[in-house]
Amino acid sequence: MGKIRTRLGDGSFIELLEEEIYEDLVDGTQDAAQKGRIPPLSEDELRYLLDLYKSKARVVGVDEGHECCLSYDNMTSKIERAHISVSKFQQLQLFERALGADTLELAHIDYSYKQVKHVVIYDKPNMEQAVLLTIPPMLYGAMPNLGLYTYPDGPCPNPGDLLPQGKFDEAKEAYAQAIELAIKDMIFVGSELYEAGADGINFDTTGAAGDAEFYAALKAAETLKAKYPKMGIEMGMAGEFILGMHGEIEYEGVRLAGLYPHDQVKLAQKAGVTIFGPVVNTGTNESLPWNLARSVTFTKACSEASEIPLHANLGMGVGGVPLNIMPPLDALSRASKAHVELCRLDGL
């Protein structure tokens, strides 16, 4: 058999023999299994993935009955940042009526809770009107983005500056200050938007600044859930692995540094999160078969450990999707189908 055209993680084309694709699938699942201490994919699952790459179909899809629900991050900026002149309401209606969206999300273009705090008085009436206009469940989303709380963007000393100077205690204290401020902002914005009619709040790209940020988001979720027991809370992650920038932070007696998705979801669940979004990073120098097998292995273990719905992140540069601003259909649809069918996913 001739070579099969597939791609690298950056989206560029490569050609591989069938046995080379299979080798990459095996290497990918083994890499995830070793790092996460989780089971690798079975022979049948690897053959299923191989068949996906052997297929010449431009677009593939899940079998009937496996359809899942879609949620989004920064929905009302997707069209805005393409500089198409439509309002937030019109964008929500486009997703609702034209793009088959199962959920909607109102968001501010500067997608961080700290920045939203300043414009909450404007987005609150937007939410009040949006829920009158639309039908699917409506979230309000933003990122915890702990980095914005330190110099030069925020009021706290920057641990990134302190750590190289060996000032470990000062760096930890800076994280403690930033955590406190971030929690306050997330609770404030979450409360305001829920009281404006949102069905739920989305903590997107959680953990981008490491363990301290994951902790802040968990504590904010915990407080919001206690305050509003019916609130839906989605938590999407920033990466597959919680960076130990602080190193010693624990939540419910579990050290956060170094957690992979199957352990992250257990803590999110405890905090009151109702939909969890695991992330597995795409390696741009590896093939898509390697990346997809690796991502499915991590996500499957996460799904098996979870009692709450999982909406895996399958956007550019995560979940076996190439790191490209316009992910190609062949790659995206293969990642979509494989994750949903092999991981028993509830959504994307």
Partner: peptide
């Protein structure tokens, strides 16, 4: 988003995706 909707999505208001999503959220 359109690609995911076609490949794996329930279809939102075209079907009952919005109703199922409410139970999840």
């Amino acid at each position: 988003h359109a690609a995911h909707s076609i490949a794996s999505g329930m279809g939102g208001m075209r079907t009952t995706g919005d109703l199922v999503a409410r139970l999840q959220l």
